[in-house]
Structures are given as C-alpha cells and as structure tokens.
Write a protein that binds this DNA or RNA. Structure first.
Length: 467
RNA sequence: GGUGCCAUAGCCAAGCGGUAAGGCGAAGGUCUGCAAAACCUUUAUUCUCCAGUUCAAAUCUGGAUGGCACCUCCA
C-alpha cells in the first residue's frame, strides 16, 4: 500500500524493515482532561490504519504513549488538589472508556512517561556525551546547532528558524540559542520530580516520545504518526534527539492527520471552542462520530457540526439496515444452487471489495472505500430477497461485515429483543391476522415509544433497535 | 516574515490527463391495510475566476480571489 510521508511530501510504497512486521508509534494524549473530538481524529484514523494493515496480513506492533507528566498535568492536579499520579490514573481510565465507545482498540503497548525515567535519562546522557546537549544549573537543553539535520521534517530553514525564534520567544538567557529546547527541567518548588545526574527534575515533553518509541520499537521505527500540528516542533525535535543520539534514521514514514474545525476555525483549548467526546456522547451515538471522521480523507481538514454528525448517523443506519436485512433473510434462506444472476451478483461484490482495498491502499482513502461499501449495500438491496440462495446472502453478509470491521464500523450486534417488546410483537402478529389494524397500529406505536422500529415485510415482522 | 494546505451540486465528499463515485437532504413514483425499509426517476453539460500547455484539463503550469494551518501548550 502507498502512504503519504510528511517528510518527503510524497506517497510512498510501504515497505516495512523486516518482512511483514510493522512498528507504529502514535503520539498519545496528555492525560489531564477527557479527550476532545479533535483528539479523537488521530486515534480513529490510526486505529483504522492499524486494522487495515492487519487485514492485509501484517503483524503490527502499535505503541501509543500517555504523557502523564508535564506543565498541564501539574497545573490541573493543583487545581483539583490531587497528585499528578491520581490525575493521570483518572484520565487514563477515562481514555480507555471513551476510546472503546469510539471503536478504538487498545494499543499493543501504552507506555507512560513516568515509568520510563531510566530510558529518558540514558538518552539525555548520550546526547550530552556527543556534545548535542548541555546542562545549565540543573536544566538540560538540546543543542540545535550541533544537529545539522534540524528542520528536515518540517522543511524549515535553520536561519529562518533562528530569526523567528529570537523574535517570538522570550529570551531565556540560560539557553545558548533560542532554538534549543529543554530535555530535562529542574524541579520547581512543589513539583513532582525524579532523581537524575543533574539533580531532581522531570523530562521535557519531546524526549519522552523518543525514549519510549526507541524502547519498544528500536532505534528505527517504521511509522510514526500524530496530528499535523505536532510536525513542528514536536516531531522535528524527536528526530533531533533520537538521531542525535544514535546517528541512525529515527522514522521511515511520518503520517500526520488534518484537523477538525468548528466553523472553519481550529478547535483549541485556548479558544474554548472544543467538545469532549463525553459532551458529544450525550447527544449522539459515538459510532456516528467515527463514521463522520471516516467520511473525509484523514489529511483533509473537516468541519464539525451537528448536521454533519446527523448525516453520518443516517448513512450508518443504511449500513446497518442492509446488514440486518441479510441477517433476517439468512434465518429462512435455503441451501440451493446459485442462479446465474446470483453468481453475477457475487462477482460484483468481489469487484466492490477490490475497489475498497484499492481505495485503502491509496493512502487510506476511507471516503472512497465507503463509496465501495455503499455500492455493495445498493447491490444487496436490489438483488437479494426471500428467494435468494443462502450462499449468496452469506457471502454478501460476510463481505459487508468484514469490510466494516476494517473501518471499525457495524460494531453493534443485533441482540435478542427484551421480553416485553417480544410480547407486543407477538400480540401484534395476532392482531394483524385478525385484521385489527387499530390495535396493530397502537402496538407499533407502543414499540416505537420503547425505542424499537417495527417493519412489516413479506416474511413477517422485523424489529430493530432505534439508532 | 518563513513553511505548507485547501476551493467539486442544498449539505458532506471521492476523483491525481480520457470526458463528474458515493452518502445525506429534497421532489415525484412503485410496494404496503396504513406505515417503515427498499427500489425507480429527478436534483453539477460542469468542478472559485483568468490565462496557458495538450488531440483531450476538475485533474498539469502561471496568475488572481477567497479560506485554513504550523513557526507558541494544543491532535
């Protein structure tokens, strides 16, 4: 498959370092709050990426960290009058709850920064040895001048960066160069701290990702992903730190997702125009949020609005209706020889499957892949009925479910009806037999009031849970 | 100032040189006891605008206009 590499700015054929093994590092959340809808985009995007790679037979190791110590963590913990550790535990738990509701699978490993101090310190020591870092009064900084490749990911010119940095950043006199960034921060009063050769302190934000990525995936990782805004300086700094220490390629493919906007403006903490996943969950099924994210290419910006989520919900229902219809048909379908039409139908389904894969192979084009999926739905609705062969129905059903699983959709399985609903359905069947339309309609309304949609079909009554 | 991205129907969106996928919505119809779902028909002779290259351009080039992001904690 081809993926867009942010560093070369081209789509490149994905060729893992070793056989079919793929190592992926994804920048995870800072666990100082519930994650918002913007955070959800990379989680969903790269979850789909991972699922698709596995669907293609790759053996994927997916590492996503938790940043559980930084300025925001300390500030929030102080506000709540709890320890940073307690704060982290609370929001790590919340992360897993929200991720699950969005259909995001847990990573292979979820390393925490605070549990990797030895690795972080060792990495900093290596940089000091090589003269690519320096210590000043208990703080350690990366010496950007000593790493000639600085700027290669973001395409920034070293001198322009220097001008920009000195203009914009407050001049911290202890740094040699305004572009230098902190690897280790000396403890301030009241802050959590760890022992180090430079005294008590804590790691800078960038170094933890380098250390954890290299711990679990080696000096060179196949793919590193995250949001577009992490490209500079976070990922640029990671390259400097890791390659500065090992003199080996740090990352072979960089992938960055686009943003979610609100009214065409970036959602951000400072603007206050953001929704947490929990806010959305009060109003919408989170599977619709996932569908919404998948409806556009992951590198394009998308605009979040209620209307968009409602549209996504409606499309999702179409997917569910087709699946449930096939499940319904399977109950009564018979084993019988395929007709010529059914064979042609199955051939078309295979073609749509091919189109789905081709779309996903092309830099994870989920919007196009969804198009192929809806072609299947259409064909199913036109072709299949009570007289269809079990083999044809089963094949289309398995195909739809398998493709949806790659996207992490259609995760809700139809369950048995609650007893009271089933009783009303049975009563309505009798009423219909008696042609008692008034009672029949009342029962249908009653069932709807309880959150179920009842439909009459040639094969009898069909009931499904309202979306 | 530096570095990039985007502009396709009422809304969302694919399309990457060969004559506009798909979804949502809307209108009419078929089916139905009535519904619902589903199906059929209609909804972009045209892709922000202006030049250019080409037998051929939404797709390539140049320019204009409008919008967005990064360079500062943020996915």
């Amino acid at each position: 498959m081809r993926i867009y590499n942010s560093q070369t700015r081209k789509k490149e054929e994905l060729v893992p370092q070793t056989g079919n093994k793929v190592g992926i590092y994804a920048c995870g959340p800072t666990v100082y709050n519930y994650f918002h809808i913007g955070n959800a985009r990379p989680f969903i995007t790269f979850d789909v990426f991972r699922r698709y790679l596995e669907h293609k037979g790759y053996d994927v190791t997916f590492v996503q960290n938790f940043t559980d110590i930084d300025d925001k963590m300390i500030k929030r913990a102080n506000e709540e009058a709890i320890t940073v550790k307690e704060l982290a535990e609370r929001f790590i738990e919340a992360y897993f709850e929200d991720a699950k509701a969005l259909g995001i699978r847990p990573a292979t490993v979820h390393p925490k920064a605070t549990e990797h101090m030895p690795q972080i310190i060792a990495l900093i020591e290596k940089l000091l040895e090589k003269g690519r870092a320096y210590e000043v009064n208990g703080d350690v900084y990366f010496r950007v001048k000593a790493f000639p490749g600085y700027g290669k990911l973001s395409g920034q010119d070293m001198e322009e960066l220097e001008d920009g940095a000195s203009e914009r950043l407050n001049v911290e006199t202890e740094k040699e160069d305004p572009r230098d960034f902190a690897l280790w921060k000396k403890q301030k009063p009241g802050e959590p701290a760890w022992e180090s050769p430079w005294g008590l302190g804590r790691p800078g934000w960038h170094i933890e990702c380098s250390a954890m990525s290299m711990t679990y995936l080696g000096d060179t990782v196949d793919i590193h992903c995250g949001g577009k805004d992490l490209l500079f300086p976070h990922h640029e700094n990671e390259i400097a730190q890791s390659e500065g220490a090992t003199d080996k390629t740090y990352v072979r493919y960089w992938m960055h997702n686009g943003f979610i906007n609100i009214d065409n403006e970036k959602m951000s903490k400072s603007k206050g125009n953001f929704f947490t996943v929990r806010d959305i969950q009060k109003e919408y099924d989170l599977e619709a949020v996932r569908m919404f994210m998948l409806s556009a290419h992951y590198r394009s910006p998308i605009n979040f609005s209620r209307e968009q989520i409602a549209q996504a919900q409606a499309s999702l229902t179409r997917l569910y209706t087709a699946r449930d219809q096939m499940l319904f048909l399977m109950e009564t379908a018979r084993e019988q020889p395929l007709t010529a039409q059914e064979e042609a139908f199955m051939a078309r389904i295979k073609q749509h499957m091919g189109r789905f894969d081709a779309a996903m192979d092309d830099d994870l084009n989920t919007a196009d892949a969804l198009g192929a999926l809806f072609e299947i739905v259409k064909d199913v609705n036109v072709t299949l009925n009570e007289a269809s062969a079990k083999e044809a129905i089963g094949f289309a059903l398995d195909t739809e479910v398998a493709l949806c699983e790659v996207l992490g959709l259609l995760m809700k399985k139809p369950g048995a009806l609650p007893e009271d609903i089933q009783a009303m359905v049975d009563q309505r069947a009798q009423a219909r037999k008696d042609k008692n339309w008034k009672l029949s309609d009342e029962l249908r309304d009653g069932i709807k009031a309880k959150g179920y949609i009842l439909e009459d079909t040639a094969a009898g009554q069909k009931v499904r849970k309202q979306a």
